[in-house]
Nucleic acid binder design. Structure first.
Lengths: 241, 241
DNA sequence: CGTAACTTTGACCTAAGTCAAGGCGCGTGG
DNA sequence: CCACGCGCCTTGACTTAGGTCAAAGTTACG
């Protein structure tokens, strides 16, 4: 029914590290199935006790925190290959929510086997730590962006980061990506108001740097944008759980 | 010469999880010595290749990223029990710098043994992952603070978080903590200008909520501050490497 | 069609930034 | 031993990036 790990289409991408046969066999045991969710489904809820572990197989989503005053901070855009739910397994409870934006397919892992993974597959445990450390690093970069950069620089930063991630997944064609989010989502990511996000996007479009319309984000000049945001563009290979 | 792990004064604090004798013995082998550094020493440098791993034994420091435009984002205040340098060991290179603010004593670990830890001490590997996940969570909270809260709320948030961390370490007496940072450090943490930070602190002092003068931070009314920032105050027990 | 969910635009406002001048405490060297 | 220079804090005056409000387009959809 569900795809065995060695046939996982994501594993064919150069972006992801290869696994040994032994590791693949373990992952097959670790995997408990697949889950398909509709757009706007909340996959994991802030404060939830013992959620599951997932890898995104396809589709896009959002990770966010909701503040008591009703405001929302988007932490990251979720893309294929992202691992989610570890926080709920390692710590007491989830500290952010995860929501599907398009239809998504998720690979579901047995939470109870996480411990076995640490005991039997030190390589994979290391990979897990790598993923968390990388996520931590990304949040640090986002923090520096929101804390220290202007609106234009923030949007330039986001455009470059998004393009590079989509390209690494083979989801971009000629610097055009299908981008099914709302401007409010980007605004909540960058700590800007919706109106100001819209106006800043309009200016960048006028400057022929990015154009986001009708669900497509076109990044005309990633190098210039990277210069504006002074961001470094390497996308390292990464583990895939 | 150096303290064996089972005599480590930090381990006596209720804040930190206890270790088995076996784990303590392993940590003693993992530990290569202690390092004492002077104020303003850069312990780890952004971009450095193969740095070492440390646990802070005493003293205070800062973790920060420097942007090419010269601005700086402080990611966190470093306190006893914090583990640093994993990023350089797990990923290619450090993505932020770490600097001592007071004199500090660091417990130094053999980077080469990190792999042994993952193979031989799955519990400790799990603890390491816990630490990184918690750090990630903290950065998410900081992101939500900078992205969505006003200057007053940001300072309220920082005051509460700092008080709670210092208290858990036994470094606070009656809501007063020795706080040897500069206002510029707090400003760079919260994404505010130095001047605005100063003026906002003055307002909070007038309201009898916090007073930061002559190197001491007095948090008069943590509950009210927690309410202002709408922040939740639990400090979970944590592993100590 | 009508309505609901987004986007776009214009007018106006304010929180926070910038600039600049003093103050204050401390260390150092004449 | 004191003065001057330096690092940091404080304050006031002024500016501005970005927020808020409100209304009009646009698109999709039942």
């Amino acid at each position: 029914m569900t795809t065995p790990c060695h046939r996982c289409p994501l594993r064919r991408l150069a972006l992801f590290d290869e696994l040994s046969d032994d590791q693949l066999a373990f992952m097959d045991k670790f995997k408990s199935g697949e889950l398909r969710v509709q757009p706007r489904t909340v996959i994991l809820m802030e404060g939830a006790r013992s959620p599951q572990l997932f890898t995104v197989l396809s589709g896009l989503g959002l990770r966010y925190k909701t503040l008591p005053n009703g405001r929302r901070q988007v932490l990251n855009f979720l893309m294929p290959g992202d691992f989610i739910g570890l926080q709920g397994a390692v710590m007491e409870e989830m500290q952010h929510s995860v929501e599907a934006v398009t239809e998504m397919t998720l690979c579901v892992f047995r939470r109870s086997e996480l411990w076995t993974l640490f005991r039997m597959q030190p390589n994979r445990a290391f990979d897990l730590t790598w993923l968390v450390a990388t996520e931590e690093n990304f949040l640090g970069e986002a923090l520096a962006t929101i804390g220290q950069r202007s609106a234009t620089e923030r949007i330039a930063w986001a455009s470059v980061r998004l393009l590079d991630r989509f390209e690494a997944l083979g989801l971009a064609r000629d610097r055009v990506i299908l981008f099914p989010f709302r401007q409010q989502d980007l605004a909540d990511t960058l700590g800007l108001s919706l109106v100001h996000t819209n106006k800043t996007l309009a200016k960048l479009k006028e400057r022929k740097l990015v154009d986001w319309s009708e669900g497509y984000l076109t990044v005309y000049d990633p190098d210039e944008l990277a210069r504006i945001a002074s961001v470094d563009r390497e996308v390292p290979r990464r583990p895939l759980m």
